[in-house]
């Protein structure tokens, strides 16, 4: 396996604020690597350092074989970059935008036609080539932005919250295209705070307040939390049920989904029995109690709790 991104102890301060602390990870060729975290967690700062446009306060990184500190220009030539703002010129047509990006990324003149045709075909933009980018819907803008950022066939693609504000269907299509690109050998580093998207990545790094809490495949990350999740469909008030269930030992998180209360328990060998016991004790009735699949979201919430406990213990 070739390592395409190698971040080593990246650290970035803005004045007193530490935006990124000691972030290290490696991304292999053809992998979709997700950097997951809340807004302001340090995802964009990390990406900017990897793109060579922001100097780390300390630490270093190698991107497509180039050191981001020594050869930022070589890094810039080897990557594609797409942000949530899509960076399209709204007063240019789709094709004019593509031609512009082909120009600034130095796609040779005699290959531009062919490259534009290829990316247009890939994202299915053919009948919108002459449409002004500003008149496209969010989903279409996203496709054009993806086409623009891959026009020069970069070996590495950075996607910074590429699906923000886009409808669910478009998001699915977008992820199909991401997987197709990865299958062809493009390495993809994507940031998101959508947990359903996190599950679509090959590997993940969770960033919280500038630091990596955990990394690995979604399954590994979930397994390390040692969670069991139970869903209860209650009869009557979900609030009453929640009040009873909050008294459970080893409760990690409790959340509401319509008439369903979802309970995540840590290190609990018999979660269903414990939940049923708690409901009985409170004299509550239920329609259904089932164990559910542990999601990446559950794991992420658990990690944040772990972090808080660590801090409490340290204090």
């Amino acid at each position: 396996m070739t390592v395409v991104v190698d971040a080593r102890h990246l650290h970035r301060r803005f004045g007193k604020l530490v935006a990124v602390r000691d972030v290290s990870f490696q991304v292999d060729k053809g992998e979709i690597f997700g950097v997951i975290g809340a807004n302001g967690a340090g995802k964009s700062t990390t990406i900017r350092m990897l793109c060579g446009i922001l100097r780390p306060t300390s630490g270093s990184a190698t991107v497509v074989g180039h050191d981001v500190l020594q050869e930022p220009e070589a890094v810039k030539r080897s990557i594609g970059y797409m942000t949530q703002r899509f960076s399209l010129y709204e007063d240019l047509t789709v094709e004019e935008n593509l031609r512009f990006y082909a120009g600034i990324y130095g796609v040779p003149r005699n290959r531009r036609r062919e490259r534009i045709d290829a990316v247009v075909a890939r994202v299915g933009l053919d009948d919108r080539r002459r449409q002004l980018a500003g008149t496209l819907s969010g989903g279409w803008k996203q496709r054009v932005a993806l086409a623009c950022s891959t026009i020069h066939e970069p070996p590495l693609l950075f996607l910074d919250e590429p699906t923000a504000g886009v409808d669910p269907i478009s998001r699915r299509r977008f992820w199909d295209q991401i997987h197709a690109l990865a299958a062809e050998g493009t390495t993809i580093l994507v940031t998101t705070h959508y947990m359903d998207e996190a599950e679509r990545c090959h590997r993940l790094a969770f960033i919280f307040r500038g630091a990596v809490l955990d990394q690995g495949t979604p399954a590994q990350v979930i397994a390390r939390r040692r969670l069991r999740v139970v869903e209860v469909e209650v009869e009557g008030s979900t609030l009453e049920a929640a009040a009873a269930l909050r008294r459970l030992e080893r409760l990690d998180e409790l959340s509401f989904f319509g008439t369903v209360v979802r309970i995540a328990l840590r290190d609990e060998p018999e979660p269903t029995a414990r939940v049923v016991g708690a409901l009985r004790e409170a004299g509550l009735r239920w329609r259904r109690v089932d164990e559910a699949r542990v999601s990446v979201e559950d794991a992420f919430v658990a990690m944040v709790h772990e972090d808080a406990r660590r801090e409490e213990n340290a204090a």
């Binding site: 810039k76 030539r77 990557i79 899509f86 960076s87 399209l88 010129y89 990006y101 600034i104 990324y105």
Partner: peptide, 13 residues
Amino acid sequence: ERGTLEALIVSPV
């Protein structure tokens, strides 16, 4: 204002 400057800065321009 439109966010295209960021794309230019990331590019090899």
